[in-house]
C-alpha cells in the first residue's frame, strides 16, 4: 500500500470530477444522454473507487452503512410517492399532469425530475450497499 502514491493522488484528483459528472448526468438527462440510472451508477462508482484506494473502512466513514441501507427504500418511496401524490390530485397513478393543471408541460418536467431523483437514490445506494456487503465478506 506504500507504492501506490500515483494512484492515490490521481484518485483524489478525479473524485470531485466524477461526482460533478454524476450530478451533470442526473440534471442534464432531459437534454442529453443520461438520467437517474446512469447518474446513480456513476456516483456509486466514485465511492467504490475511493473504497478501493483508501480501504473500505474509510469509505464507510464517508458514507456509513446505515445511511446507505436507509436510502434504498427511500428512493423507491420518492418514486412511489410521486405517483401517490398525483393520485390524490385526482389523476391516475404517475400521471404528472396532476401536479400543475394549468401548465401540464411544467408538471411533466417536475414529475420526471422527482422520479429521476427516486431512481438515482435507489440505484446509487443499492450499488454501494452491494459493494459494502461483498467487501465486508472479503476479510
Amino acid at each position: 500500500m506504500k507504492l501506490d502514491v500515483v494512484l492515490r493522488v490521481v484518485t483524489k484528483l478525479m473524485l470531485p470530477f466524477m461526482l460533478v459528472f454524476a450530478v451533470y448526468v442526473q440534471f442534464h438527462g432531459d437534454y442529453g444522454p443520461g438520467g437517474g440510472f446512469q447518474a446513480g451508477v456513476i456516483a456509486a462508482a466514485a465511492l467504490i473507487l475511493y473504497a478501493l484506494m483508501f480501504g473500505l473502512t474509510s469509505a464507510m466513514r464517508v458514507v456509513p452503512t446505515w445511511l446507505v441501507e436507509k436510502m434504498i427504500p427511500v428512493g423507491v418511496m420518492i418514486y412511489g410517492g410521486t405517483g401517490v401524490v398525483s393520485m390524490f390530485l385526482h389523476e391516475n397513478f404517475l400521471n404528472y399532469d396532476a401536479l400543475d393543471h394549468h401548465h401540464t408541460v411544467h408538471a411533466q418536467e417536475w414529475g420526471v425530475f422527482l422520479v429521476e431523483v427516486g431512481v438515482f437514490v435507489t440505484v446509487s445506494s443499492t450499488m454501494i450497499a452491494i459493494f459494502y456487503a461483498f467487501g465486508g465478506r472479503g476479510r
Partner: peptide
Amino acid sequence: PDTGIPNVVTSVLASYRGFDTFGET
C-alpha cells in the same frame, strides 16, 4: 408538446412508461 423534454429516451422512460420504470426500480 407533451413534456417539453428533447431527450425522448428520458421522457419515455420517466413519463410515458413511468409505471414500467417503477417496476424496474
